[in-house]
Design a protein around this nucleic acid. Structure first.
Length: 254
DNA sequence: ATGGCTACGATCCGTAGA
């Protein structure tokens, strides 16, 4: 069973890449972020033709998340209950007994900014939500763009990034608070090569220089971690013409 | 040198991403 997450940075622009990648990779469940597409314009028919049932929570211009699965997801829920938010960043669903929470965590813009404050409040709300979901669903995954590089080894140039948004201590502390609920970073369950990232800046030939960050993650509950057999970043779509700045992350389960 | 792309919705530049 393959579970993937991919920030596509515009579903409309990336639909050809997504279709090709789905056909080649054949994941069972896909969490998508940054659709930048309202639900009325979601390419439902095209994805159904590719063999996937979508559940989406989109908006115009910004944000937007979806879960694609072979069979329709059950108990679909959008947003974080009790956390008022105009921004469509969360969708959850149950697929074959697996609870999947797809997240597009806030960017935060700059440490100390209003958006940074929002990011930290958002993470606090996510933690409460995930805690509640975990108590109901022992087999749970939280997958998406977390906009946090958990450790310095997840950063191409830790010195240049020191204290910046995505790596600041309060953000990493929010990340660790999620893990403390009983989740594990599936990527770190396995021995990994060095300098593996999931996002590269469009500018300055970031991808060519492998100047990236590992900010897209698949977190798994203890019970799911036991079944996890691999977690990898698929760099292939990042090499295509007009790519998303993020690459998909794929976790496999027995 | 604080920029450098890309996407979007608005126009022919501003906002946002990370």
């Amino acid at each position: 069973m393959k579970l993937a997450t991919w920030n596509v940075n515009s579903l409309k622009v990336r639909l050809p890449h997504l279709n090709e990648w789905l056909a080649q990779t054949r994941p069972d469940v896909v969490c998508l972020q940054e659709l930048k597409c309202e639900d009325a314009k979601f390419p439902r028919a095209e994805l159904e033709a590719a063999g996937y049932q979508p559940a989406c929570s989109g908006q115009k211009t910004y944000n937007g998340v979806a879960i694609l699965s072979r069979g329709a997801a059950n108990d679909v829920s959008a947003g974080i209950p009790g956390f008022q938010d105009e921004q469509k960043r969360v969708i959850a669903g149950t697929v074959d007994g697996l609870r999947v929470i797809c997240v597009y965590c806030p960017n935060g813009q700059a440490v100390g900014s209003e958006k940074y404050g929002y990011k930290l409040r958002w993470f606090a709300a996510l933690k409460e939500y995930v805690a509640a979901e975990l108590s109901r669903h022992p087999r749970l995954a939280v997958a998406g763009d977390f906009n946090v590089a958990p450790e310095d080894r997840d950063v191409h140039d830790p010195k240049a990034w020191e204290g910046q948004v995505h790596v600041s201590e309060p953000e990493r502390s929010a990340w660790r608070a999620l893990l403390a609920l009983g989740l594990q970073d599936s990527f770190r369950l396995f021995e990994q090569p060095e300098k593996i990232y999931s996002w590269w800046d469009y500018r300055m030939m970031g991808f060519r220089r492998n100047a990236g960050l590992r900010i897209d993650h698949v977190l798994v509950s203890a019970e799911l971690a036991k079944r996890c057999t691999s977690c990898t970043v698929d760099k292939a779509p990042r090499r295509l013409e007009r790519p998303s700045d993020h690459a998909p992350v794929i976790a496999e389960f027995s």
